[in-house]
Simulated assay, not measured.
Amino acid sequence: MFDTMTFTKILGGFAGAFLVFLLGKFVAEEVYAARVGGHDGEVVQGYLIDTGAGDEDSGAEESGPSFDEVYASADAGKGERVFNKCKACHKLEKGDNSTGPYLYGVVDREVDTAEGFGYSGALEQVVDIWTPEHLDGFLKNPQGYAPGTAMSFAGLSKVEDRANVIAYLATFGG
């Protein structure tokens, strides 16, 4: 059935395929990475796209009304539509946790106090109480506001959307 020559051919085929994959990996590393300081230097990204994140002008505040001004005239009805993005992970019924904690009474509630939910602990290091201002900062960029948080949502970029959804959440509990 299997003689020595057949076994040698199969083993040689696997070894040859492995060498082709290693060669492909080597070529890809050379094409997509630039080496600094010679052959043994640090590997850095070969194709860098300038986003302007390091520019001095990027620190300027965005123009437009402040969160407090927008929140004063926020529409809870519009916030209900924005909350549809949150429904995948959060529920509004007290004690009904999902992927994320329940949001019943979240406005002006202490952080990490949803009963029965296991928090990562990252939020406690940033804030004590979920005031509308703290919720605004967190909803704008959860990972940037509380590094290490388990919330993987990218955030709401529009201040109006954040104010409306916070106004909607304020109608639950208290």
Rank of each mutant, 00 (worst) to 15 (best):
M151N: 13
D161R: 09
V159M: 09
M151H: 12
P147L: 12
G100P: 05
K91M: 02
T149C: 12
D112F: 08
A146D: 11
K91W: 01
E110K: 15
V111F: 01
Q125G: 11
F138V: 06
D112I: 01
Q125L: 14
E93Q: 10
D108H: 06
T131L: 05
I166T: 06
P142K: 10
D112R: 08
P132Y: 13
Y102G: 08
E93P: 00
V165P: 04
Y119L: 10
Y102T: 08
Q143D: 09
G155S: 10
G118A: 15
N164F: 05
Y104C: 09
S152D: 13
D96F: 12
Q143K: 12
V106A: 05
F117S: 03
E133N: 04
D161L: 08
D136N: 13
I166S: 09
V165A: 07
V127S: 00
T149G: 12
A163D: 06
E115T: 11
A154V: 14
V126N: 00
I129G: 03
A167N: 14
G105A: 10
Q125A: 15
G100Y: 08
L103I: 07
Q125R: 15
G155R: 07
D136F: 01
G95K: 02
K91R: 10
T99E: 08
Y104D: 15
A163Y: 05
F153Y: 15
V111W: 03
E110H: 14
T131M: 04
N141W: 03
R162A: 03
A122P: 02
S120Q: 01
P132R: 10
V127L: 02
G144R: 02
A154N: 13
G100C: 08
V107G: 11
D136Q: 02
T131E: 06
E133Y: 01
D96Y: 12
F117G: 09
H134D: 11
A150K: 12
Y168T: 03
K158Q: 14
P147Y: 08
T113Q: 14
N97M: 05
